[in-house]
């Protein structure tokens, strides 16, 4: 994605694809996440109880890892545009910041998933 947001039709078309696919994954993830939360806390729950259930639950881990990956794809693409259009940054600078943000989301997200599951 290094040449992204230059006037490169192929790159833009592919970014659009990634943006759409990640959006679909996110939409599904958000629904499952909200549903899961409402279900889990219906009788009131403490942090300890939740961790007790999530520890060692690898299905839970895989689901949230997918969630994190989808965020790490989706957010930088939109963020680079905001940097360009609202902050007036050049494409190169905008993408540098956006990629750094993507990396931060990925690392922090996966770390959180690991903390809850392992």
């Amino acid at each position: 994605m290094s040449s992204a947001l230059n006037p490169d039709a192929v790159t833009q078309a592919k970014l659009w694809y990634w943006q759409r696919i990640s959006a679909m994954v996110l939409a599904l993830c958000v629904l499952v996440h909200l549903g899961g939360m409402i279900y889990a806390v219906r009788g009131g729950l403490s942090a300890a109880e939740i961790l007790g259930r999530t520890h060692g639950n690898w299905l839970f881990g895989i689901f949230y890892a997918v969630f994190v990956f989808a965020c790490a794809v989706h957010v930088p693409i939109g963020f680079a545009r905001i940097c360009e259009e609202w902050l007036g940054l050049k494409a190169g600078a905008a993408w540098l910041i956006a990629k750094a943000l993507g990396l931060v989301i990925l690392v922090m997200g996966l770390r959180a998933v690991y903390g809850v599951v392992a």
Partner: peptide, 12 residues
Amino acid sequence: RLKAVAGDVGCH
């Protein structure tokens, strides 16, 4: 035409 209208000054 599609090449001309794709990209970040075009439809994207």
